[in-house]
Design a protein around this nucleic acid. Structure first.
Length: 502
RNA sequence: GGUCGGUUGGCCGAGUGGCUUAGGCACUGGUCUGCAAAACCAGGUACAGCGGUUCGAAUCCGCUACCGACCUCCA
């Protein structure tokens, strides 16, 4: 365990707090995952990359983390329960005339594919709502037993108002007052069977045409959307656990209701630190199909969208996400992606330059001190509510130092071996372990071909060097131009030629 | 309408009371180079508007304008 003082912004208290796990050295982390009724939304990707960063940093600090991220494959409705709401997955299944579980399978695979491309670590557990119907029914029963729910025509609703009167919790997370909620909620319409508009469904009676249905003590139905997270976090992380995350838009009502369910069932507030990741815009506006500024992850990776001038690899997208803080709105645009690509390449280049450097002397001068300071600073920024953009800025300042060492502007004699080693460790840890980036500017595209490509390139570069020694510019340029067409760029420097993929 | 958040230089994006030159991209100058590209080094521009608190505010308070989120099960 590293001795860091980690601060986390807690949505519940609206301030940064020093992080203390419930159990020394262990962390329970729950993140609300996707509803698999469609290709994963790019904004959703940002949220999961942000929590991947958080997960990775906690691991880096030496914590044992149990990271649970659910997959919602039932219960998430389109429209309003009272007006013939339809399950999102059931709806897609009906439209495409296939089984709901085919929808679930298709989009779960899509989701995992994108998560893998973005180099996120797999969670420890990825439970599904349909895999926990029994547990959900049990929790509904417990809440009924505690008196915080009522059955009505085969559905079960949570008594929000009574709950709010007994416990001080309701509205705390989202900063809402129940009176305001009641005031602004629509008039009760005649079909509404709930006692209060703020009551929400724990179990919903399935209409005749509803595809996804299970038996329960209250008849055939399906679980309310908020319930699965309460059930699965409790089952895998306990009644109280450390961190619960999700997108900002889940804060209300999803997370607020989740707390109510947990407290109503178990009598304790479930979460120590609530964390919410902010939204992703496209060209300054919310990404939406109606605005015509929607971009799918695949379109981004393939460059098949009108709003983009070219394809951007997943690592560039990940880098872009790292450049803004998780609690800030981030704006995606073609120019932002182009800028991210350049920045990403500069960072990777600096890292390769660093790897080729060898530790210098014993004396330590001004630059040695500066480098040590920047290293310390980079970690301090991560400790301050996972401030990746600031940590990244420190790495870029170190990049300048690295490049100066390479060019000889900084004499390696004035850099101690310890500092050099610490610098290499820091760079490696940040880029690959914490930021979760991969160097796509070199190598053979996986499959263990990197070594072969490197060897071939060494050969080609050596042959070209020979031609250049003979002033055979024709051959030299032929090699350079042919490689360029293969997206490989040769870079003639003072101390030989290097190359990168474009 | 209610609640909450935001408005930083050409663009993106950090920063919450006094030096942060934040950083990235773009731009300009230079270095390197057979030519070129790339790379590297160096440099400038900002804190929505008005008023207040303070010795001192991008940072705190108030008002105005604009943008956004949630409230209506899009992360």
């Amino acid at each position: 365990m590293k001795s860091h003082e980690l601060k986390i912004y807690n949505s519940l208290t609206r301030q940064k707090e020093i992080f203390k796990p419930l159990q020394e050295g262990h962390i329970g982390l729950y993140v609300c995952g996707p509803t698999v009724y469609n290709n994963v939304h790019l904004g959703n990707c940002r949220t999961f990359v942000n929590f991947d960063l958080i997960y990775r940093y906690l691991l880096h600090l030496g914590y044992k983390v149990r990271y649970v991220r659910n997959i919602t494959d039932a219960g998430h409705l389109v429209g309003d329960v009272d007006e013939g709401a339809e399950d999102k997955i059931g709806r897609m299944a009906r439209l495409e005339q296939i089984e709901p579980m085919e929808i679930v399978q298709r989009y779960t695979l899509d989701f995992k594919d994108k998560m893998q491309k973005l180099n996120t670590l797999a969670p420890s557990i990825e439970p599904t709502a349909t895999g926990h119907i029994v547990e959900q029914i049990e929790m509904v029963q417990e809440i009924l037993d505690k008196g915080f729910a009522y059955e009505r025509n085969g559905s079960v609703y949570f008594k929000t108002v009574e709950f709010a009167q007994k416990y001080p919790y309701y509205g705390q997370l989202s900063g809402k007052k129940l009176e305001d909620l009641l005031e602004t909620t629509r008039e009760l319409n005649k079909q509404d069977e709930k006692d209060h508009p703020a009551d929400f469904a724990l179990w919903v009676k399935a209409p005749k045409e509803h595809l996804m249905r299970w038996n329960s003590p209250w008849g055939e139905g399906f679980p309310g959307w908020h319930l699965e997270c309460s059930v699965m976090s409790t089952k895998y992380l306990g009644e109280k656990f450390d961190i619960h995350g999700g997108g900002m838009d889940l804060q209300f009502p999803h997370h607020e209701n989740e707390i109510a369910q947990n407290v109503g069932c178990c009598g304790v507030a479930p979460v120590q630190y609530w964390m919410h990741a902010n939204m992703l815009n496209m060209n300054g506006q919310k990404m939406s199909k109606s605005l015509g500024n929607s971009v799918e992850p695949d379109e981004l990776f393939n460059g098949t969208n009108k709003l983009l001038s070219k394809a951007y690899s997943p690592m560039i997208v990940r880098f872009l996400f790292l450049q803004s803080h998780y609690r800030s709105v981030s704006d995606l645009s073609d120019s932002a992606l182009l800028a991210a690509e350049k920045g990403y390449r500069r960072l990777m280049e600096a890292n390769r330059n660093l790897e080729a450097l060898h530790a210098g002397g014993s004396s330590s001068g001004e630059h040695d001190k500066h480098i040590r300071h920047l290293i310390k600073e980079a970690f301090a920024h991560m400790d301050d509510d996972f401030n990746a953009p600031r940590a990244l800025a420190s790495l870029f300042e170190l990049a300048t130092e690295i490049n100066k060492m390479k060019s000889g502007d900084i004499d390696l004699k004035h850099i101690s071996g310890d500092t050099m080693e610490s610098l290499k460790n820091t760079y490696h840890a940040f880029i690959f372990d914490i930021f979760g980036l991969k160097d796509e500017t070199h190598g053979g595209g996986g499959n263990g071909e990197a070594g072969v490509v490197d060897g071939l390139m060494d050969l080609v570069i050596a042959l070209r060097a020979k031609a250049r020694d003979n002033k055979d510019w024709g051959t030299s340029d032929q090699i350079r131009d042919t490689l360029q067409k293969l997206q490989i760029q040769l870079k003639d420097g003072k101390d030989g030629t290097s190359w990168t993929r474009q």
